[in-house]
Amino acid sequence: MNRYATTVRRWWAVPPALLALVLVCRTAGALELPVPSLSGGTTGARLDHLAPLIVVAAVMYCLDRGIPEAEATAVAPVRTLDAAALLLTGALTHPAAPLVGLAVPRNTLLLLAVAVLAHRLTHATGATFTALGALFLTLLIADPGDPYWWALPLHPSDSLPAWLASAVLFGAALWFKGARR
């Protein structure tokens, strides 16, 4: 099963994505990109809001690679191994928090949860774009200076409700990922 995780699923792609996340946030994390706003004009979206999509894309790439026939007859529970890899990915974003800020690991968990939930209905590209669309919809509708309760990526990094909601959504995504279709 170790060979399956490295050659088929290619979970080795996630650590370089985490490194790229840290490098992007350290070098250009405060850079603001113009995003149109429904309240008129444009608003600025910091690059560290978009950086978690690097990890999301790598994880979706790994989850989309598989051999369904081999997984259906495997002795080792592939769903459990995928859930463990997702948990490990979420856990590995947190040691980087002193370098990238506390909001980046939270947003990575949140966008990863949205993508994993969308992956039940579509393929990796669709799931990644669903997470991107959810983020852009949040940036388009919410006010970054005073985010609404549902605009979790825009909450301050020390917001306990945003952390709890992200963790609960991530747990729900792991549970749905493991559930049979």
Rank of each mutant, 00 (worst) to 15 (best):
M1P: 13
L169H: 12
L160R: 13
P153L: 09
T108K: 04
L160W: 14
A76W: 12
H155L: 09
T7Q: 14
L23W: 12
L50Q: 03
L109E: 10
T108M: 04
A167D: 07
E32P: 00
A91F: 09
E71P: 09
R65M: 02
R180V: 03
P95N: 06
A51N: 03
A162W: 07
L121N: 03
A134K: 00
G133W: 11
G90P: 03
G66F: 00
R10D: 11
L152A: 04
A118G: 05
L87P: 00
G29A: 06
A179W: 05
L81I: 13
L38Y: 07
V104E: 06
P36V: 13
V24K: 02
T128G: 11
I54V: 15
A103Q: 14
A51G: 04
I141Y: 13
A83C: 15
G90K: 05
T73I: 00
M60K: 04
L99N: 03
V100K: 10
P161M: 08
T130R: 05
V24Q: 01
F176T: 14
V168M: 09
R120K: 10
T89D: 00
R79L: 04
L21P: 03
D64Q: 12
A127K: 04
A115K: 02
L53K: 01
A70Q: 14
A142I: 06
I141Q: 09
V35I: 15
L137Q: 04
P156E: 14
T125E: 11
A20S: 07
T125S: 11
R65W: 02
L19R: 02
A142L: 07
D143C: 06
A172S: 10
P153N: 09
W163L: 15
L112I: 04
A179H: 07
R120H: 01
A115F: 05
L87F: 07
A17G: 03
I141D: 08
L139D: 04
L169V: 09
A103M: 08
L132K: 00
V55H: 03
T42Q: 10
V114G: 06
A179P: 00
T27Q: 14
L117G: 13
W150C: 01
L63A: 12
I141T: 14
A134W: 12
P34H: 09
R106A: 11
V24S: 01
A72P: 07
V59W: 10
P77A: 13
L154H: 08
P15C: 01
P77W: 04
A172H: 04
E32M: 07
T125L: 14
P105F: 05
S37P: 05
M60E: 12
L88Q: 02
D146I: 09
L18P: 06
P147I: 07
L154N: 10
T80P: 00
L63T: 10
L174W: 06
I54P: 01
G171S: 15
L86W: 11
D64R: 08
V59F: 08
L111M: 13
A17F: 02
P52M: 03
L99A: 15
C25W: 06
W163Y: 03
